[in-house]
């Protein structure tokens, strides 16, 4: 019974749907403020129904499958992408008592599941049989290969510091001192996160001015909804990962609980939006240079720093 609740409501389907609708609306409103405009306004309080209507519309629209593609691959990919994007949620300690799959290897599961996602998006572009989608797919692979090294090395540093892969333990052992020690890792994680989520300035794979909509180009209706849903679920997985690994998860200043967790994720979403509003897109070459030339060496240095800090600051804590 509890498992059923976990799968369907929290932290499962319904939770993700609510998150997608709310975060989409929040992005629109927040972006509008940065753009000096109003944003969604007429439907519901402060336009909050707008996104709901948009998703309902997408679900009821015809899903066009282009001729000449493998229809199974074409329609399977969005479903897989959405499912895989939601899976990390099972390993996250949302509250002190809610971890659906408590395991000793939480960090590993998180990293692997987040790492699979770009492959699925590449396949969706590959399966579309469209020049723009294909270019988008190639770009997503290039970007993934470049950014994942830094991302993983940054994500593994808390595990190194605390000597465990258990997310629950990591959350519980987090302190102000460990937060400060992990700040470089967090910055690296955040930059790599932007690339992994295809967010500006790294929105190269779906650069609308260059290659229309990248791997999304041929998708419409329900399939498009699923891909967008997967994107937002992926946001959550990555934010939640950062919150647990670096920001102390559900721990708060005054009270612990899910609210603190949520606020931390929202804070990251806001920073991401602010970067989106102020930075033009970089090119593929610049992105590759940034990651291989600067971020990968830096994340290796960061590992060294973590080891030093572990020995000298945290007294070689097991």
């Amino acid at each position: 019974m509890e498992l059923l609740f976990n799968i369907t409501i929290f932290p499962g389907m319904l939770y993700f749907l609510a998150w997608t609708v709310l975060l989409f609306w929040f992005f629109r409103k927040f972006m509008a403020a940065l753009h000096k405009r109003v944003g969604p306004h007429f439907n519901g309080p402060a336009g909050s129904y707008q996104t709901l209507f948009d998703f309902t519309k997408l679900l009821t629209k015809e899903s066009v499958t282009p001729s000449g593609v493998n229809p199974y691959l074409f329609s399977l990919m969005p479903i897989l992408a959405a499912l895989i994007a939601m899976l990390p949620s099972a390993f996250i300690p949302w509250t002190p008592s809610t971890t659906v799959v408590p395991t000793e290897y939480g960090v590993l599961a998180l990293v692997v599941l987040i790492g699979i996602e770009p492959f699925l998006l590449f396949l969706s572009g590959f399966g579309s049989d469209n020049k723009y989608s294909f270019l988008g797919g190639i770009r997503i692979l290039t970007q993934m290969i470049s950014s994942e090294t830094a991302f993983f090395l940054a994500a593994l540093s808390p595990a190194l510091l605390f000597g465990t892969l258990n997310l629950q333990t990591i959350t519980e052992s987090a302190s102000w001192l460990s937060f400060v020690v992990l700040i470089p890792a967090f910055v690296l994680y955040f930059i790599a996160l932007l690339a992994l989520l295809e967010q500006p300035p790294f929105n190269i794979p779906d650069a609308e001015q260059e290659i229309v909509y990248g791997f999304y180009t041929e998708y419409s209706g329900t399939n498009y909804f699923l891909l967008k849903f997967a994107e937002f679920a992926e946001f959550m997985a990555v934010y939640a990962g950062a919150t647990v690994l670096f920001l102390g998860g559900y721990k708060g200043l005054l009270v612990d609980g899910y609210l603190c967790f949520f606020l931390k994720m929202l804070l990251m979403a806001m920073v991401m939006m602010a970067i989106r509003a102020a930075t033009p897109r970089v090119t593929m070459k610049q992105m590759i240079r940034l990651f291989w030339q600067y971020l990968v060496p830096l994340s290796l240095l960061n590992i060294a720093w973590i080891m030093l800090a572990k020995i000298y600051l945290l007294g070689g804590m097991a």
Partner: peptide, 16 residues
């Protein structure tokens, strides 16, 4: 110019 770089803020601010 900025729209072509994927940044719409400049356009919005200028239009304002």
């Amino acid at each position: 110019f900025y729209n072509s770089l994927g940044l719409h803020t400049a356009f919005m601010w200028n239009v304002d």
